[in-house]
């Protein structure tokens, strides 16, 4: 879960750091809030191994007061920059954050390129890079993990949901050579890999040729008998 938690921790740290940075500057009017944070993280892996992240964080009124002065609220471009620099080995795209002021929550979404690796023959690997994560299966292509961690001074409760791409099969949680947890799954490859446009069209053309020949032979008039 390290890879995921690395991103999650960075995201959360940035979130909290941004809150903290602001709260530090307004520390004279607002005390740090001891109440825990709760976060829901959804990771959807697409057909090419890219992952769309969605993080929803609900806050107490006091946390919300601090958040209102944060960079993430007021200057999301800095938040995006810090996220990118904290995760320099990744490519992050489509960063977006929306704020639900009525419910004291915000949602942050972004896409991380190449989170799952393709090994050929339809086999994919999605590294968790952690030993013995607590993972439970939600459905055929979705799993859930939970964790609690201190980020800064805040005890943060995190719930991750991982969705593998449609058509993914044989999803297994296993370990790599170093004993670290990984997900492996199958998608594409095998017979399916032959269903490219040129193969389909080629087969159709040959089939059409055969059909035409057969029909022509069936519809050919009988030869007149010579007495």
């Amino acid at each position: 879960m390290k890879l995921i938690s690395k991103i999650a921790t960075t995201v959360c740290s940035i979130t909290i750091a941004l809150i903290a940075q602001t709260s530090a500057s307004i520390a004279q009017v607002q005390a740090p809030d001891p109440v825990n944070l709760t976060e829901q993280l959804t990771i959807k892996i697409d057909n090419l191994g890219d992952a769309t992240w969605e993080m929803v964080q609900n806050m107490t009124q006091s946390q919300w007061e601090n958040f209102k002065g944060s960079q993430l609220m007021n200057d999301p471009s800095i938040a995006k920059r810090n996220l990118e620099r904290s995760l320099s080995t990744y490519v992050i795209e489509d960063f977006n954050r929306t704020v639900d002021e009525m419910n004291r929550s915000f949602t942050m979404t972004f896409k991380v390129k190449a989170m799952a690796q393709y090994n050929g023959s339809g086999n994919w690997t999605f590294k968790l890079d952690s030993k013995n994560p607590q993972v439970s299966k939600l459905a055929d292509n979705s799993y859930m993990m939970t964790s609690n961690m201190y980020i800064g001074n805040a005890l943060t409760q995190q719930t991750y949901k991982i969705y593998f791409p449609d058509g993914a099969s044989n999803i297994q949680q296993t370990t790599d050579s170093f004993g670290k947890a990984i997900f492996t799954y199958s998608r594409g490859g095998g017979l399916l890999s032959y269903f490219s446009w040129n193969n389909i069209l080629g087969v159709l053309l040959i089939a059409a040729a055969i059909v035409i020949v057969v029909r022509q032979q069936k519809s050919a008039p009988p030869q007149p008998k010579i007495a």
Partner: peptide, 11 residues
């Protein structure tokens, strides 16, 4: 049919 078959094989 020969043209179709050849095109199919090429593809």
């Amino acid at each position: 049919p020969i043209i179709l078959a050849v095109a199919g094989v090429v593809l």
